[in-house]
């Protein structure tokens, strides 16, 4: 695949001498996406069938996807999904609202921003998994230990974006609002909020992905109820195919969360130039 064929295609593929690459390019992207997925599943099916990896360790998709489909009819599976999603949602909501309020307060004042900068830059890279032992000591298997990890991890993602957003507020707009006598809350509502919203949405999307990672991690390592614990149980019980089926379920959950948050982002920002330009083009 040379990069030059790509450029030819971009310029409109000439009719004569169309290579395989150009012909594939004329297919609708969805078809190619499906083809790629089938190709991946085909390779996965072949690897254990040819004995490259024993089927005991890598069960083929025909078996794994069957178990995944059967899982969908089990109440226990949906209870595990619910446990994971509940921790994820509560943690994200708490982290996001705290980060939004704190971000608006800190970002609104130059002194506070400079005072907290070093502390934030120091605490942010601390890996939240470092808190696992502490969470276990404090809360054991309860929901709180999971929430503690999720909130810590998601909080920084949202806070940083809110701080960027507040810093991006147009000084002319802010001074105009002030000279028109808008109070603090009115300024936050009418000047700061519209600027911060796109940043907040980015922070929420990043935070949502991180919150899911930490929810599953807590279940896997600490043993809080949820999909992660089911995976750990399947693994220690030697139930390899069910384990793969559960991993697929967590992946699909991740995809779903991504899609939902992108949709929410587009809705909430439909007025924003970046989204309007995207629709127009």
């Amino acid at each position: 695949m040379s990069s030059s064929t790509d450029d030819v295609a971009r310029a409109g593929a000439p009719a004569r001498g169309r290579s395989l690459h150009d012909r594939l390019l004329s297919w609708p992207p969805v078809v190619l996406g499906v083809a790629g997925t089938l190709l991946f599943l085909g390779v996965w099916e072949l690897v254990p069938a040819l004995g490259l990896v024993p089927a005991k360790y890598l069960p083929p998709p025909s078996e794994t996807l069957g178990i995944f489909a059967r899982n969908l009819t089990f109440v226990d599976f949906w209870l595990a999904v619910w446990d994971t999603l509940r921790g994820w949602g509560l943690g994200l909501a708490f982290a996001a609202s705290a980060a939004l309020v704190i971000g608006l307060v800190i970002g609104g004042s130059g002194v506070l921003r400079r005072l907290t900068h070093s502390t934030i830059e120091f605490l942010r890279p601390v890996p939240s998994v470092a808190l696992i032992p502490l969470a276990v000591l404090l809360f054991g298997f309860d929901l709180e230990s999971k929430l503690m990890l999720i909130v810590y991890a998601a909080f920084w993602q949202v806070l940083i974006q809110v701080l960027y957003g507040v810093a991006d507020v147009d000084p002319v707009a802010r001074n105009t609002a002030r000279s028109f006598g808008l109070g603090y809350l009115a300024r936050v509502r009418h000047v700061v909020w519209p600027t911060v919203l796109p940043y907040l949405m980015t922070g929420l999307r990043l935070g949502a992905a991180v919150a899911l990672i930490l929810a599953v991690t807590a279940e896997l390592v600490i043993g809080n109820p949820g999909l992660g614990r089911e995976i750990a149980l399947a693994q220690s019980g030697g139930a390899t195919a069910p384990m793969y089926a559960l991993v697929i379920a967590t992946g699909l959950l991740g995809v779903l969360i991504n899609v939902v948050f992108r949709a929410v982002e587009r809705r909430a920002l439909s007025w924003h130039p970046s989204v309007r330009a995207e629709v127009a083009s």
Binding site: V216, T217, L220, A232, M243, L246, V247, T250, L252, I257
Partner: peptide
């Protein structure tokens, strides 16, 4: 990308 990376630990333990 959407798979939470920690669930790869049990898979790779098996593999």
């Amino acid at each position: 990308r959407a798979i939470p990376p920690p669930v790869l630990v049990p898979i790779l333990m098996v593999l």
